[in-house]
Amino acid sequence: MEKITLKDIAALTGYSVSTVSRSLNDNDRIPVETRNEIKEIAKQLNYTIDINARNLSKKTSNTIGVFMQNDFFKLPHSTFTNIFWSTLHEEIQIKRYEPALYLFSDTDDFKYKISQLFNSGLIDGVIIFSKLLTNKEIEFLKEMKYPYSLLYYGPEKYSEEVFTADNYSAGKIITNFLISRNLKSIATITTDMTPSFKMRTLGYKHALEEAGIKFNESLVIKAIPSFENGVEIAHQLYKKLDEIDAIFSQHDIWALGLIKGFTDLGVKIPEEISIIGHDNLAFKTWFSPVLTTFTIETKKICIDAIESLIDDKIYKRRRVPVFKTLGTLVIGESVR
Rank of each mutant, 00 (worst) to 15 (best):
G65E: 06
K142Q: 11
I51P: 01
K260R: 07
D304V: 02
E210M: 12
Y152S: 12
N229P: 00
L208G: 06
T60S: 15
G257V: 07
T164M: 14
D264P: 03
I30P: 04
S308Y: 05
V66P: 12
Y204D: 00
S334P: 09
W254H: 12
N216V: 10
K74H: 10
E243C: 06
D252E: 13
G266Y: 07
A211F: 12
T325I: 04
Y158G: 02
N167M: 12
P321I: 09
E156V: 14
K95V: 09
K222V: 01
T107M: 08
K300S: 08
V162F: 02
N119H: 10
A255Q: 08
Y47T: 11
T134Y: 09
S196I: 05
F197A: 05
I269V: 11
I41K: 14
T5H: 12
D304W: 03
F227R: 15
Y315S: 02
V322I: 14
I247W: 03
D106R: 06
E37T: 11
K172S: 12
D166K: 07
Y146E: 08
I138G: 04
F262N: 04
V32H: 09
V17D: 02
M1I: 07
V32R: 11
T190K: 00
L122K: 15
F294H: 08
Y152D: 15
A223D: 14
T107S: 04
N167T: 12
T293V: 00
K240Q: 14
G125V: 04
G212L: 10
I310M: 01
T34F: 01
S308V: 01
P155V: 00
H206F: 11
F248S: 10
H77R: 13
N55A: 02
A165C: 12
K239E: 14
G14N: 07
D312K: 00
K324R: 14
E333L: 10
W286R: 10
E272T: 04
P147W: 05
L219S: 02
A282N: 06
P321R: 06
D166G: 04
K299Y: 00
E228V: 12
V267M: 06
V320Y: 04
T295G: 08
L56F: 06
V32I: 13
F215C: 14
L258T: 01
L151K: 10
V267H: 04
Y148V: 11
I259C: 07
T175Y: 15
S115E: 11
E209V: 15
T81Q: 08
A305H: 05
W85A: 15
S149Y: 09
T19P: 03
D124P: 02
L122A: 13
S249P: 05
S16V: 01
H206D: 15
S115N: 10
S130H: 00
K172A: 12
I233G: 07
G257N: 10
S159R: 15
K239C: 01
F227N: 04
T188I: 14
S308A: 01
T293K: 02
V290Q: 13
F140L: 00
A100V: 12
